[in-house]
């Protein structure tokens, strides 16, 4: 079990204890006081774990919604019925990333990790991702949390996404050889672009950058040349393709693995070119 899964399982366990989400209904009333005491005791620890685990839940989800369980062991149209599939009515979409869309009010199928923990009629927050899309959605469960205020939940999810985005950008900034604010000049094809070895080659075009500020790294002696991948195939479709005269923040990457046959810096990842509006964020994260 990897760390994320472990923390997620802890979250599931703690949540069950904290809120009596699935299991406290069956607790005798006499035990509630003990549970309350346990909650108060564990609260600081549990809260700390919940925050990091919540981000992980969001990281691993593509469709988060609040729903009502309709049936266990059943499925919606075009989704295969399995022992652990449940029909859940989507009451409110908290976050939907493509291709989930907006199925508010419709039934979806959730493939539960532990189907015995939830019963028809229960409401919950489902962290899922799509595994089947036809006439209805099939969703794999990442985690299930109790219902909470939807506005609060949306804010938490939004904050988690921002945390994840910052993590990704931080990693990219750290990897970058140089981070500059500048304007891209006219690009010209390299020999690699004129005579590719494969249709999946990046097709590097070289362009100078007129630098206005250095956010990371020192001004080199010569001009700063960046290689732009002009290929639109699956490997390079997301690589930034700034046009001449375009101003932005450029995370200039080096070819550390020496996998390209051209010199200079490279724009490889979608995060390697950002609009000027992101400058404050970049400066915050680069520290």
């Amino acid at each position: 079990m990897n760390t994320n899964l472990a923390s997620l399982d802890r979250l599931r366990t703690l949540k069950g204890r904290e809120f009596g989400f699935l299991s406290l209904r069956s607790f005798p009333a006499t035990r509630h006081l003990c549970v309350l005491v346990l909650m108060l005791t564990l609260c600081p620890v549990a809260f700390a774990q919940t925050q990091s685990s919540f981000v992980d839940l969001v990281r691993r989800s593509g469709f988060i919604f609040q729903g009502t369980v309709k049936a266990i062991g059943e499925s919606t149209p075009t989704v295969v019925r399995e022992r652990n599939t449940a029909i859940v009515t989507v009451d409110r979409v908290v976050e939907s990333l493509p291709p989930a869309g907006n199925p508010t009010g419709r039934d979806v199928t959730v493939r539960l990790r532990t189907p015995g923990e939830i019963r028809p009629g229960q409401k919950a927050t489902f962290f899922t991702y799509v595994y089947s899309a036809g006439k209805s959605l099939g969703l794999d469960e990442v985690g299930i949390l109790p219902i909470e205020d939807s506005k609060t939940l949306e804010d938490r999810v939004r904050a988690a996404r921002q945390t994840l985005a910052d993590e990704a950008l931080t990693a990219r900034l750290r990897r970058a050889e140089m981070v500059v604010v500048g304007v891209v000049g006219e690009a010209r094809p390299t020999e690699e672009a004129r005579n590719p070895g494969s249709e999946h080659d990046p097709l590097w075009w070289r362009a100078p950058i007129t630098v206005r500020s250095f956010e990371k790294g020192q001004r080199p002696r010569g001009p700063i040349i960046v290689n732009i991948a002009m290929n639109f195939d699956y490997l390079w479709a997301l690589a930034p393709k700034p046009k001449a005269g375009e101003e932005g923040i450029f995370l200039l990457q080096a070819d550390r693995e020496k996998q390209f046959r051209v010199s200079g810096f490279f724009l490889i990842d979608a995060l390697d070119a950002l609009p000027i509006s992101e400058l404050e964020r970049v400066r915050r994260l680069i520290k």
């Binding site: 593509g62 493509p98 989930a100």
Partner: peptide, 13 residues
């Protein structure tokens, strides 16, 4: 056909 892999899903469509 080339399609996006849904966020969270380890497998593509």
């Amino acid at each position: 056909v080339f399609m996006a892999t849904p966020p969270g899903s380890p497998n593509g469509p």
